[in-house]
Amino acid sequence: MALAAAVLTVTLAGCEKKQAENSSGPAEKAGQQIDRAASRAGEELNKFAGKVGQGMEKAGQKLQDEAKQAQQNEARKDQ
């Protein structure tokens, strides 16, 4: 009897899960689309932020190089 009850419970749980997955309403589908769009937007923002970061690094390096060059030019004037 206990075995039959366990089998029945597992079977019913499996049916309910399949039915819940297949019965997505319009609001749930819209929510899933919003989630996917937000995920893609986040990925694009991360790519953009990476490119901005690389540009900032290059600009910082250029400033350092120019400052070093200016110091060298000033040192030559003092000699």
Rank of each mutant, 00 (worst) to 15 (best):
F48I: 12
K29Y: 04
Q33P: 01
V7Y: 11
Q19G: 00
G42D: 02
A30V: 01
T11K: 09
A37W: 04
M1P: 03
M56D: 13
A59I: 03
G50I: 00
A2D: 15
E74D: 04
S24V: 06
Q69R: 11
S39N: 10
A2Y: 13
Q64M: 07
Q33W: 00
A59G: 02
L63R: 12
Q19I: 10
C15R: 06
L12Q: 11
Q71Y: 09
P26E: 12
E44P: 02
A20N: 11
A38C: 03
A67K: 08
R40Q: 09
G42C: 01
E21C: 05
E44Y: 09
D78T: 07
L12C: 08
G55N: 12
K51D: 09
Q79M: 11
E28N: 01
A6T: 13
E57L: 10
T11A: 10
A49Q: 04
Q61F: 00
A59L: 08
A6M: 14
Q72G: 02
A41S: 06
K68Q: 10
Q64L: 07
K17S: 11
M56Y: 14
G42H: 02
Q71G: 00
Q61M: 05
Q61E: 11
K77S: 03
Q64P: 00
G42Y: 01
A38K: 09
R36H: 09
Q32K: 11
N22A: 13
F48L: 15
S24E: 15
P26V: 05
E21M: 12
S39W: 06
S24Q: 15
N73L: 11
K29C: 02
Q69V: 01
Q72W: 09
E43W: 02
A70S: 07
D35Y: 06
A70C: 01
A75M: 06
A38Y: 07
D65M: 07
L45T: 02
R76E: 12
V52C: 02
K29F: 05
Q69Y: 02
K77M: 06
N22V: 05
E57G: 06
G31Y: 02
T9A: 15
A41Y: 08
A38N: 11
K58F: 07
L45I: 05
N73Q: 14
L45H: 04
A13S: 14
N22E: 14
Q72H: 10
G42N: 04
E44F: 07
R40N: 05
M56P: 01
A13E: 13
Q32A: 10
L63F: 09
E28I: 00
D35I: 05
G55T: 01
K47I: 02
P26M: 10
A27T: 08
K68W: 04
Q19W: 11
G25Q: 06
G50W: 00
A27V: 09
A2G: 13
A27L: 13
A30L: 05
V10E: 15
Q33V: 01
G14R: 10
T11L: 10
A59N: 04
